[in-house]
Computed example of a mutant assay.
Amino acid sequence: MTTPTQKLSDAGVSIWLDDLSRQRLASGGLQALIEEKNVVGVTTNPTIFAAALAAHDAYEEQVQELAAAGTDVDEAVLTITTDDVRAACDLFAPIAEATQGVDGRVSIEVDPRLAQDAEATAAMAARLSATIDRPNALIKIPATEAGLPSITATIAEGISVNVTLIFSLERYRAVVNAYLLGLEQALENGKDLSGIHSVASFFVSRVDTEIDKRLEAIGTDEAAALKGRAGLANARLAYQVFEESLDTERWRRLAAAGANPQRPLWASTGVKDPSLPDTLYVTGLVAPHTVNTMPEKTLEAAYDHAEVTGDTITGTYAQSNAVLDEIAGVGISYDEVVAQLETEGLTKFEDSWAELLQTVRTALDNAR
């Protein structure tokens, strides 16, 4: 019997696991997910690394070596995290080779404290890429306004990028432009465009969490009927932007030079509201050339009981616009929500980074 995750893969959805640890690599657990549940990539973040360090003794020997060498906490974080990402890149190398670099990708995040400094972000992206030294690594750069030039600069250097923290359609269009501009500069620099890849991580569940909270505060039947609908509508309209970006002379010129499309990636796909189906952001966002990064709980739910019926995005654009219009009609400002989510998202990134630094600092202190 064809599994739901196989059906997702057949429909053009790449399943990437939103988790990584040395234990998962060493135990063969990640390899099993590749073989059994169609996982073809991995994303990481500071919270994931902090949890892995706190939960497993797989890092103990390396931490002791770093402590004995007098390594400071920032360098220790760089060493530990890039070692894990490099090992994961090696594990996924056969998939990367088989898909010409489209999948088999492992993402690592630039220090979010640099998010408002484009030059420093681009420099850190280059350092991460050089340190990992694997063609299937993706460097995560937040899609802040200040981050847009660093996306362009990083792509122009031939480094593949996962653009993260996208909530609004307007910002997504700016991200697409930043990618295309980077490809144009890469072409001028004599880079091989076929080796440059990118995904644009569009966050889903957090949109519903914030808008549903506001709908509940309004308290009318009309507002209640809109619960759990904004996240899908917003993401589906992002896919429309993706399709439109490929139907331009600008893109066709780049494609003729070997460029790869920047695929939409559905992030934040774990359902936060228990009253909603636990596979909502999986089954509702099926379309070709997309990535769905799933926490393990969501992956397990999808594998177990997701009802995959084919493309659930194409042809929904009028309906999705209507949902956002109705939300505006009950008094909720889309622009205000997405701006708040970006601000909160960046704060969460910074808090997660601080948590990771503290976890490593504690481990180093205990080892000294």
Rank of each mutant, 00 (worst) to 15 (best):
A257E: 05
V110S: 09
E75W: 01
R252Y: 08
S9P: 05
T343G: 15
P4T: 03
L17E: 10
I15S: 11
G270M: 02
G101C: 05
A120Q: 07
A354L: 13
L165V: 15
E336W: 07
T43R: 02
A235T: 01
A257C: 02
G41M: 01
V42M: 06
E355L: 12
P112L: 00
C89G: 05
K37A: 10
A233L: 06
R105A: 12
V175S: 15
L181E: 15
D325Y: 04
D247T: 03
A32C: 05
D335K: 08
P4S: 00
P94H: 06
E61Y: 06
E326H: 10
L169F: 02
A76D: 07
P4V: 02
P135Y: 14
V207D: 09
E35K: 10
R113V: 09
K297C: 01
F202E: 08
V77N: 04
L181H: 08
A235I: 00
W16T: 01
L232V: 08
S21Y: 05
V241C: 12
T343I: 15
G158R: 15
P277I: 13
V85Q: 02
T43V: 03
V271I: 07
P264W: 05
E300G: 06
A120L: 12
P112N: 00
D103M: 06
K227N: 05
G29A: 11
E244N: 04
Q100M: 09
L78Y: 07
A115H: 02
A153H: 13
A52Q: 02
A235H: 02
Q6E: 13
L280Y: 14
R171V: 10
G28A: 04
L33Q: 06
F203L: 12
P46E: 11
P277M: 09
M124R: 13
G28S: 02
I313P: 00
D351E: 14
A93N: 04
A217W: 00
G28L: 04
